[in-house]
Design a binder for these strands. Structure first.
Lengths: 193, 193, 193, 193
DNA sequence: CATGAATGAGCGTTCATTCAT
DNA sequence: TATGAATGAACGCTCATTCAT
């Protein structure tokens, strides 16, 4: 994560992410970020123009990272179904390996704190576009029922988000078996087979 | 909403909900709540012990309201399928009629600002329990595939949440037809039929 | 104490005295006084015009009470020396029996919170005047060295105040023997004998 | 006074002392201290952790200063009597030259606002210990009557405090002659001569 | 008389941001 | 670059006081 930034920026962004998840945005003060990241407040303002700027940069960086993570190794998959499975496996893996980034996006994607501009930039680099394209192809090939691909992707994504929430709250254990069940469950919900 | 509170408390809770959705928690200051609700700061502290207390009271009140809204008119429905349909129709209706309350719960159910005690109280009065019971019966009667009812309810709920998010962001129009499609989509994903 | 006041006023004054000694003036709020005295805030303002008024009334009442306590049974004493001994015995007894009133006067006699008018009224009804008169007589009769009676009374009073402070801080035990020693100590310091 | 502190801390402590004597603790707000000391509120909190901290630092600094002032040039004095006279002369001089520091200690040494820890630290650096030692020696050498040195020091100190109070209230003029009279008065009260 | 809900100025404190070094 | 002292507006909250009942 944050590979495209320099050492100072990276320290600030990583620290901010962890603090926000642990303590809320309002309890994450600049002086706390400075202390935890070992970058002085003055220097933080050398690399970021404001606190809002940090949060927005964080948002964009995480969405891009998530997009790469979900769509990676998708080209290699031969069939549509294999790509479908791999993509949602990646989503689950992302939520398990990077829970803070995952939760941050969930909590702040609707926040007025994130500029519309950031959301727009994020959308372009995220995984929603490729995913909708995959569903569109499946509809065209007659594999999926003829519904709006955006709607189907959103509903399936929502399912996985809530599965991960339950997992993070220790309400269920998200083993590989459960993950495979969930992916099949989604496939069945739209498959014409 | 907030029928169980007196006039002052109701004004404070309604104002706070609207401000938090519009401006974020951190930008919702007590003086702003006082100004908008026309209850003086001092008097707010007569009815609530702190800002945290307001937010937690808000949380509990909305969860209870949502629980009633979703489970209402469920007893009247004859068959399991009719009850299934009615419940999810209610969820969609709730999200459309009370978008602020709906978004508040989505945004703050994972927040450290909400006490564990509030979450516990809310869980007992919410709709999750009855809904899981309905799914459990469906599994026992052989209508649904044999998966963990908690998992199924969470995944379906996630689908509707993201459908409503898309609707609120004007990414799709959530007409009655689309709602019925979505409900059928969910039924199919777990039906053994 | 506070016999000249009605039931409500007495409750307020007693409560205020105890709270101020226990918690400081600034931590003694009107609502706390109301709660502890079981007189509503509104009603307190029926009997006192302000918080300052309560403190000043308290000050005057305690000074008068102390004056009576110290000068009581003084007329009965035959000789000057007996009256001298009885008066200072009374001061010690006062400090031991009414430590809160005693400390209140010590702490607030120099405070800007007490009106000059209160201090004046208090002075007239206190024990300083009679005491200085007693010392003046002793000087005139050649019993005491020829120093300013005001100065001698103040210095002796200071000695007893600090003796009582040490006692209240458990730095020494103020038994009757110690008290008699101290009184003799003072007598000797001014006696020509 | 306050030589051991930096410029900002010194400004805050001096301002606070003057305001507290002039207006009472409760009327001495942080914003007033900031305004008068020309140190911004935020920066005050850079040097002190709270208002309580300022008051306690003030208390400790003044007690140490007073201790130094009273015990200075004591070693030089040849005889016990000379040291006795010099010490009490210093007390009187202290009260006259630094009336605010003197009054502050008198008013707040019993206040719950001062931490026990501060009182303890202050006691170790104050002048009470050396003074009691001097009296103990005088008792051992047969110069003084055989009474508890702590009791004698407290009583004499009380005498000087009340002498200074009278002086500060313009009830008597504390000339050098009067001071010498008072010191002799105290010496006589305990001298076996 | 008596209550306690209601007021809003002002409190101690924090915090995003700036600036001298 | 890099620091952290310095700023002061704004925060959550309290409190003496008033007022409708």
């Amino acid at each position: 994560m944050f590979e495209q930034y320099n050492k100072m920026q990276k320290a600030v962004l990583e620290t901010t992410l962890n603090l926000i998840i642990e303590k809320e945005l309002q309890a994450t003060s600049m002086s706390l970020i400075a202390k935890e990241s070992r970058v002085s407040t003055g220097n933080i303002y050398h690399y970021f123009s404001s606190k809002e700027d940090i949060i927005n940069e964080l948002y964009k960086a995480i969405v891009l990272f998530n997009g790469d993570f979900v769509t990676k190794s998708l080209k290699e998959a031969a069939t549509l179904q294999e790509r479908f499975q791999q993509a949602w496996r990646n989503v689950i893996e992302l939520g398990k390996q990077y829970p803070n980034g995952f939760r941050f996006i969930e909590q702040y994607s609707f926040s007025p704190y994130i500029y519309e501009q950031s959301k727009l930039e994020a959308y372009k680099g995220g995984w929603c576009g490729p995913m909708e394209q995959l569903y569109r192809e499946a509809v065209e090939e007659g594999l999926f029922v003829s519904l709006d691909p955006h709607m189907m992707v959103q509903m399936h994504y929502g399912s996985f988000v809530y599965l991960l929430k339950s997992h993070q709250q220790n309400m269920l254990e998200l083993t590989e078996d459960v993950a495979e069940q969930a992916i099949r469950f989604c496939w069945n919900s739209v498959s014409r087979g």
